[in-house]
Amino acid sequence: MKDIANNWKDLPVGGVIDEPGTAINYETGDWRTLRPVHNKEKCINCLACWVYCPDAAIMLKDGKVEGIDLKHCKGCGICAQECPPKVKAIKMVEEADFR
C-alpha cells in the first residue's frame, strides 16, 4: 500500500482511493472480545460461515475452511451462529482466555 500523504497537496483528488483492496491494511482483529475457534474435525465444509462472514475473515484452501483470519475477525459470532446446529464446528471463546 502506498503511504498516505501527510499534507493536503499530495492527497488523491476528490478523496478517491485509487487502488482496490486497501481494507486488508486496516487490522480490526483487536476489536475482538470473543474469538471463533474452528474445529476441522467437525467441519463439513458447507462454507456457510464463509458466505456470512462480514469481514471476509474465513480463510479457505482448496475449497475447504482452513481457519480464521484473526488479524481481521472482529469476533461478531455470525460464523458460529450460521454453522449448522448438527455440526457446531465453530465455538466462540472469551478472547481473555488466550492472553
Partner: peptide
C-alpha cells in the same frame, strides 16, 4: 477505485 470513502478528523480537513 473507491469513491466517496469516509474521512474523519484525520483527512477531511486536508481534502
Amino acid at each position: 477505485i473507491t469513491v466517496g470513502a469516509i474521512d474523519f478528523v484525520d483527512y477531511y480537513f486536508e481534502h
